[in-house]
């Protein structure tokens, strides 16, 4: 029996496979397909203080080996999560991590304070990297000063595991990672989507209503791997890797590059059973290579 357990600060995961925010709602959308308790964790849809309608349709474009989305944080607000979602998920045997968003530092703090009171939520993922909202989101994640400011404020009101989700739309992601580590982040997750666009040559119009959107899928994997490796070498806190992971081999590559855990996102749209297949695949890889603990894989890249 191989040991798949990993630790992200105070968060003990039964295996390193999580689902990425915005790709499986609150878990219920994929509950028909898999047993949620087989997952290491589920990062729920980006949550803001108030209800948000998100951006206008069209919000999606298929691109080579990937897709663009411009959903724009459509969600019913944190109070709806607390009142209507949390009671249904709190007893499921996996970690639910709330992805916290805001337009202002005050909004991030208020949402975090509310989530902090929920016993069964043992971590938040602070999203300072959403490219699809006009205010807040990515604008906090593209400079060390603004990233530090929001993490510092949230850290003051949050005593459980604080994961900060980083934007790849920066010159030096390792600097941002170091900055948020310096303000008390317990972990960083990366990458969020890459700012991108798609054009329809026939209509001479952008495909997305917002003109630009976020690119995800296998197209971004090499970029994501590079960034995970750079950040792993720059910080001491655990790194959660994501970006185009479609199968167990992809997941193992991220772990070798330095990820303590991984998130599966876009792959869920094509096959919602992917995360469970990845858990099994990592196990098989470890048996084949005579690896007892998944910890041995983390940062195991031989350069």
């Amino acid at each position: 029996m191989v040991d798949l357990r990993v630790k992200i600060h105070n968060l003990f995961l039964k295996n390193p496979v999580m689902t990425a925010s915005g790709t499986c709602g609150f878990g219920e959308e994929i509950a028909d397909f898999i047993n949620l308790s087989e997952l290491g964790g589920i990062v729920v849809k980006g949550t803001t203080l108030n209800h948000r309608e998100g951006n206008a349709y069209p919000r999606m474009a298929e691109t080579p080996s990937g897709m663009l989305n411009a959903v724009g944080l459509q969600n019913k607000g944190v109070d709806n999560f607390i009142d209507n979602i949390y009671p249904n998920i709190k007893d499921i045997d996996t970690h639910f991590i709330v992805n916290v968003n805001g337009s202002t530092i005050e909004e991030y703090v208020t949402v975090t304070e509310k989530i902090n009171k929920l016993d069964k939520i043992s971590a938040i993922e602070l999203n300072i990297s959403c490219p699809n909202v006009k205010e807040g989101g990515m604008s906090f994640g593209v400079s060390c000063q603004s990233a530090e400011a929001v993490v510092k404020a949230v850290r003051k009101v949050y005593d459980k595991t604080l994961i900060v989700k980083l934007s790849p739309n920066v010159t030096n992601i390792a600097e941002i990672a170091k900055a948020v580590e310096g303000q008390g982040a317990d972990s960083v997750s990366l990458i969020n989507t890459l700012l991108a666009m798609a054009v329809n040559a026939e209509t001479r119009k952008p495909v997305l209503s917002t003109i630009t959107g976020g690119l995800s899928g296998p197209a971004v994997k090499p970029v994501a791997l590079r960034m995970v490796w750079q950040v792993y070498n720059a910080v001491k806190i655990p790194v959660i890797g994501m970006g185009g992971i479609m199968n167990a081999t992809d997941a193992i590559e991220f772990m070798l590059a330095g990820a303590s855990a991984i998130q599966v996102g876009t792959a869920l749209f094509i096959d919602p059973t992917t995360p469970v297949k990845i858990v099994k695949g990592i196990s098989e890889y470890m048996e084949k290579h005579n690896i007892q603990s998944v910890d041995e894989l983390i940062g195991g890249l031989q350069c």
Partner: peptide, 21 residues
Amino acid sequence: NMMACGFGACLCCVEDTKAGH
């Protein structure tokens, strides 16, 4: 409407209805 997942996860295929997206 164009959709990615088909099962309510991606929120890409929304229609702007009288009750919102």
